[in-house]
Design a protein around this nucleic acid. Structure first.
Lengths: 247, 247
DNA sequence: CAGTGGTCTAGACCACTAT
DNA sequence: TAGTGGTCTAGACCACTGC
């Protein structure tokens, strides 16, 4: 193929160059880089352009920059991974399977103390919440059992929403402004109820994900998602620390 | 306290301002921002400084910038999380518990086809590898059962290393240059061997993490870590897409 | 004190793309 | 074609920090 155009910027090129030298082991941890001005000259760019590359690599964790001392290759950190915990509907669709959601329970009730404590982020016992329970299925097979609590104060319109077929997770994802979430992942043995819901045998291993979503104003939703352990797995890749590579 | 100095840069200040307007819902998804030049003026900075803030927010995922169209608040994406899968020794130490590692098996042997296939990254059947098996314990209780394969070609000195008490994960983390890893997480029922190793009952749910580590040169190590499901959990926070907030 | 990174500017040209 | 973001520069001053 004929080389089209050089559509990558100089600082991108330089960033990739340096990153490659680091991950290839050419520049081991602790290696000191030349000063900015020198590197700028040797790459034939202005100092600002070189600074852009170096600043970015420092932000990504590859470099440590200290005034007066210089720029060094960082020590590899503990294993870090980023994980996309996708919307379940999208997840099933991605596998090319037929997705369905069935609502098992819907109630508007007050939180008890245990729930409020687990939710955190300002949730209080006695606070009114929407309580949902439902089953996600893929090609007719149970795929995920969901237990969810939603804070109506943070999700306007949620009480009017019919979740008979629309999974609340998908709806909330569309409605919510930017929010924060934390996840807790563990394994558990299916109890009788769970086994029945997921068409498993008593005691079969399941993967449980508890997700707490909040905004600056308080808690939005608490969700417990339980997957059959043998049919589901999370995949995490090594930290792509920002989204620049996906351009 | 007396306001010391304004030690935060203008672009940091502007970045935080805009990010706050987004996460607070003040600027909802889809909201269009003024053009760069106007925002620069209204914030009293040069266009480059404003550009630095906007570019960063775009890289972090908060903004979508399209030529000719303008800059918009992004739609919240699928739940994304970053997870620190720490070194087990550090993990146990962090809980204030006493850590110990016991080597159960050590062998230098050839990979079979199934193993090579699972490892990927250029691993081939018949290739010589170091095979290890060991048990991590916290305060005398089994904490994690580890099965590991190491590529001696990628880990110089690994064959001379005595792993009787030093966990191979910790050693490798110190020895390796920058590397990539992928993780697979699932739940499984303990079989007889696993139950014995972890002091569990047959069928108890366990959390399995399979980690493949590689460099540009090829595979480095393959590790299967199995935790008792009720005693261990992974915690993931909402994606801090880069390290800028940790400054 | 001196060396290094951190920041900022004013102006310029380019690339992309909706119209 | 016109408007927008993307990039780049040369030079400048500042802040921090080890000597």
């Amino acid at each position: 193929m004929t080389e089209p155009k050089q559509r990558i910027s100089r600082h991108d090129r330089i960033t990739a160059d340096i990153r490659h030298r680091i991950v290839s082991g050419d520049w081991p941890p602790g290696h000191q880089l030349p000063v900015e001005t020198v590197m700028a000259q040797s790459h034939g760019v202005s100092r600002m352009t070189m600074n852009k590359a170096l600043t970015r690599l420092a932000r990504e964790g590859y470099l440590i920059r200290r005034k007066k001392l210089g720029t060094f290759v960082a020590q590899p950190r503990a294993q870090s991974a980023s994980m996309e915990i996708a919307d379940i509907e999208a997840e099933v669709g991605q596998m090319g399977q037929d997705y369905r959601f069935a609502l098992l329970l819907r109630a508007v009730r007050e939180l008890d103390a245990v729930e409020a404590d687990d939710i955190g982020s300002g949730a209080k016992a006695g606070q009114v919440a929407l309580s949902l329970r439902g089953l996600h299925s893929a090609d007719g097979q149970p795929f995920c059992h969901e237990t969810r609590l939603v804070n109506p104060a943070q999700a306007p319109g949620v009480l009017d929403q019919d979740f008979a077929a629309t999974p609340p997770g998908s709806w909330l994802l569309r409605q919510l402004p930017w929010s924060e979430a934390s996840h807790r992942i563990r394994a558990l043995n299916a109890d009788a109820g769970l086994a029945r819901a997921l068409a498993l045998n008593d005691g079969d291993a399941c993967l449980e994900i508890v997700r707490r979503t909040r905004t600056a104003e308080g808690w939005v939703t608490w969700a417990r998602l339980v997957y059959p352990g043998d049919s589901h797995q999370l995949v995490a890749a090594f930290a792509p620390r920002d989204r620049s590579d996906q351009a």
